[in-house]
Design a binder for these strands. Structure first.
Lengths: 254, 254
DNA sequence: CATATAAAGTCACAAAATATCACATTGAGC
DNA sequence: GCTCAATGTGATATTTTGTGACTTTATATG
């Protein structure tokens, strides 16, 4: 008996998902006449590739419950503000820096509003708006399709723009940090863009508050040798610290 | 027994909420054939994410979209709002449009927040921010250096991005209108960019309220044959009207 | 203004569906 | 036959949903 190829099942699942926006484990198990466990393994695999998002009972396209920007701003505002100030202290007059979108990086932008000579590139609308109102700061917005949840541009256009630039420092966020010390993100696209941002800077710093430590988001951000430090509000667990030591970048406490 | 995915229920609740402005627990329970308690748990969850506001008996949209201070305090806000609504009436579902920066065009963006299927390109940060919060509107930000006065991108990068696109309608502002019916601008760069914007649209409309009629700013915007109309709040003087007639585009009163 | 009352909310618990994990089975390729 | 990866199975854990007792809120009414 020859078994139907699993790859076909995966492709059909993706097809259905894109047609209808969501799939349920039970329905797929019936449709392909396999056990629910098999379907779960399929979906898990697709989720690890960042192609679907798992939800109870099935999977959907897009991000089911990533908290909105305004929500994330409110969460642990003090810790994020401290991280922002710490990051700002690394920025010297006259530098050209890149700031990623996110609630933590928005605090960095706010901490930079007292500066006199800076050039800042960002993909975040609120950060651009904040900094363009600061005299003495030259602001460059990275164009592209705007993602509502981040209020920032993501996509081919943004990635393309990034290629044209080289900056002194890049400040990049992350969706979460895995136990192994890998930075993770909600979508494949975001992960790729953050990786590109890390490599755009001569040095790059990752900003993450302690709420990220426990959070494992589906896609890994590929490592970069430009990383010069991880800026946090609390010291992370031993595992993450060990991973940091191994990667030879310091953990900087705000 | 397989259950319908809870995530779909949540999404539909959000959709209904966006369409009608509010939802009631009882109606949703009937609609999805689940208990009221389940609906309450759904709404509570959405409220925790900041996506809805709970009220006794149901929920309403999270952010009531009150016009920002700068918008209300804008000079001749009523006239500009009328122009914005008039311009919005020219936009059909599914169109791809380009919106220039400016206070008048911001009112156009505001008037488009009820739409379902639109793609909007803009160089204005506030317009991008307004529209990216509107579900169903795909927003593309034109990148480049941000000018503090306009809170919008201007420059070589922006001009370059414009070349890659073709849109159904372009809505462009102007610094002023000369007696001869020429559109004028404050800087050479802005004038050149507005000219490029006019030519990016299959059709282009110029938005100008009556405070622009008397104003003669230093640089002329080169004429374009894509111009399909000038949208105003009051009819301009005879000279401007005559020039419009000669250029064969209509003056549209909001 | 106090009170009645119906509707809505809260909470704790139980039932059902789903998820996870370890281990068994199957079949293809060597 | 042996190995390995994919799949199935069943025990256990977790999540979601429903139910009913009880509390709170909105609103009308005297």
């Amino acid at each position: 008996m020859t078994r139907p190829l699993a790859i076909n099942r995966l492709n059909q699942i993706l097809q259905t998902l894109h047609d209808t926006g969501s799939v349920s484990v039970g329905a797929l198990a019936d449709q392909f006449d396999v056990s629910k466990e098999t379907i779960r393994r399929d979906l898990k695999q697709l989720a690890e590739q960042g192609r679907v998002s798992l939800v109870h009972g099935g999977a959907t396209v897009g991000i089911p419950a990533e908290p909105s920007l305004s929500r994330r701003e409110a969460e642990n505002a003090t810790g994020k503000a401290a991280i922002g100030r710490k990051a700002a202290s690394l920025v010297k007059d006259g530098m050209v820096i890149l700031i990623d979108s996110g609630s933590t990086t928005l605090f960095l932008a706010e901490a930079l509003t007292t500066r006199e000579h800076l050039t800042v590139m960002t993909n975040s609308l609120p950060i651009a708006l904040t900094l363009c109102r600061t005299p003495g700061v030259k602001t460059i917005m990275l164009g592209g399709e705007i993602h509502a949840n981040d209020e920032a541009s993501f996509g081919v256009d943004t990635l393309e723009s990034l290629k044209h630039f080289n900056v002194d420092l890049a400040f990049v966020g992350a969706g979460g940090i895995s136990d192994e010390g890998e930075f993770t993100d909600y979508t494949r696209l975001a992960a790729e863009q953050r990786h590109a941002m890390l490599n755009t800077g001569r040095k790059a710093y990752v900003l993450a508050d302690h709420t990220k430590f426990e959070r494992k988001t589906p896609v890994n951000i590929a490592p970069s040798d430009r990383i010069a430090g991880l800026i946090v509000d609390y010291l992370p667990s031993g595992q993450i610290s060990a991973a940091a030591a191994q990667s030879r970048w310091p953990i900087m406490l705000a």
